[in-house]
Design a protein around this nucleic acid. Structure first.
Lengths: 111, 111
DNA sequence: CCCACATATTCAATTTATGTGATATAACCA
DNA sequence: TGGTTATATCACATAAATTGAATATGTGGG
């Protein structure tokens, strides 16, 4: 594991790098911390879904889901694929999956 | 792993439970997704720190750090211990640590 | 008691996020 | 072409998060 350690010996350049990474991580976490987006990502872990399917799954309106997907898309977490009229979304990589699995274990198993 | 799967057979009660858990997870993720709080938590992984130490580590003002700690405290992620004038904070459990390690791997290792 | 230091709280100002309704675009079909 | 379905985007209103300055609280020392 080894999380970043900051001491008096840490140079400004190193500090900048750490702050930069913290910013990315922070953005990513903000993107997935929204309740609706969290649910969307959970559903996408089991495979791609259309926007309409997601609307039904998370019980939200079309515009809301579309905007949440838009945010996830801009954040680079999901990618759309058009098939006729419908658009299917899927996870770009397993970053969200990895985090979600931990979070799921933490919040849905025990306690 | 097995993230929650929602089908037409999922009862309302089950749905409610899932939504409830999603809310907890969402709150937790929101708490840790703030850049300053993220850094604070990272530092606390390596052991308890005083407020002043944290101010220096994350280069933020007293009031800001105190407020961020307050939020983490209310969220149940950290706990204070007073020793004379100074107050030391530490992680309540390793929930943050587990998530942070994954996030650190994802954002600070490769890419 | 008074002062200085460490930390917390409060409040107002601002920023950012979110949901909603209306409208736009794109594809398909008659 | 016109209508319908699926999705995206926009503009606005509202809510939530964040920041900064000021002030309060608690502790130890003289």
């Amino acid at each position: 594991m080894s999380l970043p350690v900051i001491t008096k010996e840490t140079t400004q350049t190193e500090l900048d790098a750490i702050v930069q990474k913290a910013k990315s991580a922070s953005c990513f976490l903000k993107a997935i911390s929204h309740e609706g987006r969290l649910m969307i990502l959970c559903h996408l872990v089991s495979g791609e879904k259309s926007v309409t399917e997601l609307e039904d799954l998370i019980l939200a309106r079309q515009a809301a889901v579309s905007q949440q997907l838009s945010r996830l898309r801009l954040e680079g977490l999901v990618i759309p694929r058009r098939d006729g009229k419908t658009i299917y979304y899927r996870l770009v990589d397993d970053k969200p999956k990895q985090v979600l699995e931990i979070v799921y274990d933490l919040f849905c198993r025990d306690n």
